[in-house]
């Protein structure tokens, strides 16, 4: 649609909201636009979205915003309460908590993104393939997801991290390992619902290969429910990472990952509450923002989803 850019605002909206879209692309954009309109009407979801954008910007701008280096130790000034020099105080090694939070945002949010990037495609492919191909492949794949689902998520991640070596990469892989089965389940359910629809049958008759049908026709249609799941999962990913850190198996010091910061500072909760509380607040804010956004998206995308 090369002429899109030249259209005025009104005609663009008309194009997007058209009841008789001329092309599949127009229909797709139209759906997205309606979604956005519905989402904008939900103040909580918007609050979540804005918070997330702010957090991401703050993390990206960490080198500009952070008043100190996140690793600079100042042993004689450890556990200093919030002051003009250190807005959020200093930690057990005299490092500036604000600077660590800003830099740590990159790691924590980066971990979340990495997990999603790993998990969503895998879950999508496995689920769609299982659902479309069916038969033995379906049964085997679903049993595998059963096994992973039957594991308590934290325990599996814990065992896995322990089996390799604690650190950010292991934590990402471990969380990904525990997070993919629900995605596969959702994608499979969606696939089953559309597998026998007329347009898939038509494409098949037109001679499209199985791979092509799965990749081009089925997967995009399963994306919607997957996005909801992802946005709801973000907060649980952050929390799992933090719990791993709490049990000594997540990101490791001196990394300013938020969960690791809380974990290593939790012993100060009585005498220097700000050291564990500041990163905990950061986790809370990010996690709540993702939850609010996810909740809003779920309402908009499909209000009846069960799991």
């Amino acid at each position: 649609m090369s002429d899109t850019s030249t259209m005025s605002g009104t005609s663009l909206r008309a194009w997007l909201l058209s009841d008789t879209p001329a092309s599949r692309r127009q229909a797709g954009w139209g759906r997205l636009y309606r979604l956005w309109r519905d989402l904008r009407a939900n103040p909580l979801a918007m609050a979540g979205l804005v918070t997330i954008i702010l957090l991401i910007l703050a993390a990206l701008a960490a080198p500009l915003l952070a008043p100190y280096s996140p690793d600079a130790q100042h042993l004689s000034n450890h556990l200093a309460p919030p002051s003009a020099a250190h807005w959020l105080g200093t930690d057990e090694l005299g490092r500036d908590i604000l600077s660590r939070l800003l830099w740590g945002g990159r790691i924590t949010l980066g971990m979340v993104v990495s997990v999603v990037v790993l998990v969503a495609p895998v879950g999508l492919i496995v689920g769609c393939a299982a659902g479309y191909i069916g038969g033995l492949a379906d049964r085997v794949l679903m049993r595998v997801t059963d096994v992973f689902l039957a594991f308590p998520r934290l325990i599996l991640a814990l065992a896995f991290v322990a089996a390799i070596t604690p650190g950010i990469t292991s934590a990402i892989i471990a969380i990904a390992l525990t997070a993919w089965p629900p995605y596969a389940r959702i994608a499979r359910a969606e696939t089953l619902a559309i597998r026998n629809s007329d347009f898939i049958a038509a494409t098949r008759l037109a001679g499209a290969s199985r791979t092509r049908i799965i990749l081009v026709h089925i997967m995009p249609l399963s994306l919607g429910s997957l996005i909801v799941r992802v946005s709801l999962d973000m907060s649980s990913i952050i929390l799992t990472a933090a719990a791993l850190g709490f049990l000594g198996m997540g990101a490791q010091p001196p990394s300013p990952e938020w969960g690791a910061m809380v974990a290593s500072a939790r012993r100060f909760i009585v005498n220097a509450w700000w050291v564990p509380m500041m990163p905990a607040m950061a986790i809370f804010v990010a996690s709540l923002a993702f939850n609010l956004l996810g909740d809003g998206l779920r309402d908009v995308l499909d209000p009846k989803q069960r799991s």
Partner: peptide, 30 residues
């Protein structure tokens, strides 16, 4: 050891050794 106070001491040693040019990668564990 990953537990306190070892993790703190290890990070301080890491900073100390960095001053003389030795880059230490910490491997905390159970």
């Amino acid at each position: 050891f990953a537990a306190a106070p070892f993790s703190d001491v290890a990070q301080a040693v890491q900073a100390n050794l960095k001053d003389i040019g030795i880059e230490v990668k910490l491997l905390p564990a159970q």
